[in-house]
Amino acid sequence: MFYEYLTVGIILFILGVLGIVLNRSNLIIMLMSIELMLLAISFLFLINSVVIDNLIGQIFTIMILTVAAAESAIGLAILVAYYRVRGTIAVRSLNLLRG
């Protein structure tokens, strides 16, 4: 039972990663993928906290939720500011700084 949950968490995390890596069009999708990754991480923390019967995982989950909320708030703010400047939210156009 534990392994299935773990697999689901990891698959969710990988989906989030792929969402970031493969996504070239929309900045909102990227934020959502980050949220998804954080969610997967929280999920894994919860599972582990239940399995090893330790409360610290749940404490971390609550902190991660807080951080995620703050992060998405700041990210959306940046997005809005960005949209005001550029008039678009395509990730492809975010390439002004090159090496």
Partner: peptide, 18 residues
């Protein structure tokens, strides 16, 4: 070649980081 890795594309950075 190395500095060409820094393409300016965010998803590339993400991929490299991962």
């Amino acid at each position: 070649f190395i500095s060409n890795l820094q393409s300016g594309m965010v998803f590339n950075y993400a991929l490299i980081m991962i």
